[in-house]
Write a protein that binds this DNA or RNA. Sequence first.
DNA 1: AATTCGGGGGG
DNA 2: CCCCCAGAATT
Length: 357
Amino acid sequence: MTAKSVAAFQDVPDVPALRSALLAWFDVSGRDLPWRRGQEGAREPYRVWIAEILLQQTQVVRGLVYYDRFLTTFPDVHALAAAPESDVLKAWEGCGYYARARNLRRAAQIVAQNGFPDTHAGWLALPGVGPYTAAAVSSLAFGEARAVNDGNVRRVLSRLYGERQPTEAWVQVRADALLDSRRPGAWNEAIMDLGATVCTPRSPRCGVCPLAPFCAAYASGQAETYPAPKVRPAVQDVPAVAVLIGDAHDAVLELRTGSLLGGLLGLPSEPVGAGEAVPDALNRLCARLEARPGLLLGQVTHTMTHRRVTLHVYRADAALPRQPVAQAALSRLDHRALDLLRDRQESLFAWDALFAE
DNA sequence: AATTCGGGGGG
DNA sequence: CCCCCAGAATT
């Protein structure tokens, strides 16, 4: 084979053969997932839509749990549209990226009025629906020939073409060209299944990959080195103080506003300023609440993408309304802060039990 | 084009 | 500890 034909092979694989190979593999080895109910290319729009939002930056294994719970709580778009935002966030609690849940509810209110969009452009117009989700729903539920571009596709195509630095546009061009327009829904499900179960980030199973004969990275013998790791921003340390007024079951909670954990409830808190002492921040917080500061309960640390928050948790007293913690949507950070008191109460209970004997 | 937004699983 | 995950909105 000449150098020229090698280059030609890598730029233009035998597309019909490649399509057949992947779809044949998918027909045998594709995953059976709960949002794939209904016929290929004609899945139920509501189920597909919820799944696609839930799975944004969320692994399928974890999404499965939330998916069942969410569909039980909100069986159709009308139930979702009618629900208070706090109920939707409670169903989303612990799943992260909470703007997804808020946008989902807003979009449901639009869909409840106008009906489900049946085109890519129609889906793209809904809040929380971007290029990936619009392509996924319009192809999986409506059979439209739109190629998805997600983390799986990016990795599969990076390896297939031997491109270590694939840009969004680069991936989309190849994805569009490879899409089998006779089975767009199945094609999209297939390439994502391949990325999730065979063409995995660390230890790709090239020995069972239907695309190995077409794959430049496989030919190089270093498939696992494609694509190059993304550069990520450094993690920033963020100290803060919080107060627990009440107990682990009924506590004073504040509604978080802004982009970080916006819409969730949490213990009243304040950031500790640069060079500020923690007790000073506590006094500032208690002054705002008209509360009397109490003893230190402990510290909890929680990392959220690029912030490492260390929360110094104190008890405090104030004449403020408390609310049942179990019904509130809280971040993991606030749950850990509440656990400080829960653990303490349990150990006190254990001491009582010991002395009672 | 770069940042920001959660949280957890796996090497 | 470091990587990534069925991305979207904002700047």
